[in-house]
Simulated scan of single mutants.
Amino acid sequence: MTRSAELRFREVFFSNPFGALRAGEVDAVTTWLPVREPDLTVGVVLRDAPPVRWALIWRTDRATPLVRALAEAVTDCADATGR
């Protein structure tokens, strides 16, 4: 079985980094850590080299198969590059 998905990038503004996520306009965002929002899940840490810390974030109630697959793919890429 062939599976496919479309990946689009969209700018998220630092003044409201979770607005599009909470509105359901995007499935996940990458943003600076720390994130302490009870309705959001901090997933894969993309960069952890202080002072720069980034992670993949998604709505806890929208942990769709697509979001889980994206998190798994990012983790696999990080493992393959030794990061």
Rank of each mutant, 00 (worst) to 15 (best):
L46V: 14
W54V: 12
V67A: 03
P50D: 15
V45L: 08
E25R: 14
R59V: 09
P65E: 11
L21G: 04
L46T: 13
T81Y: 12
V45I: 14
T64S: 15
D61S: 13
P65G: 12
T2C: 03
I57K: 14
F14H: 11
M1R: 10
D27Y: 02
E6F: 01
F13V: 01
T2D: 03
R53K: 15
S4C: 05
L46R: 14
T30Q: 07
P17T: 01
R68H: 09
E37G: 02
V26T: 03
R59D: 10
F18P: 01
A78S: 15
L66G: 10
V74S: 06
L56Q: 04
R83A: 05
P51H: 06
R59T: 06
A49G: 08
W32Q: 03
D39V: 02
D27W: 06
L33V: 07
D61T: 07
C77S: 11
F9M: 09
E72H: 05
A55P: 06
E25S: 12
V29F: 01
A20F: 06
W58P: 04
T30L: 00
R3W: 07
P51Q: 09
A20K: 11
A20S: 10
F13T: 04
P51R: 13
V42N: 13
P17L: 00
M1N: 08
R59C: 12
R68K: 14
L21R: 00
A20P: 04
L46H: 13
C77A: 15
T30V: 15
A55C: 02
R36W: 04
L33K: 01
T64I: 05
V42K: 14
L33D: 03
A23S: 14
A23T: 09
E6Y: 00
A55T: 09
E25L: 13
R53Y: 06
V67F: 02
R8P: 01
R10Q: 03
R68I: 08
S4N: 05
P34Y: 02
A28W: 05
R3M: 09
I57E: 13
G19Q: 11
A78E: 15
G24F: 06
F13C: 00
F18W: 04
D76F: 10
P51S: 09
A23L: 12
R8C: 06
V52W: 12
G82M: 13
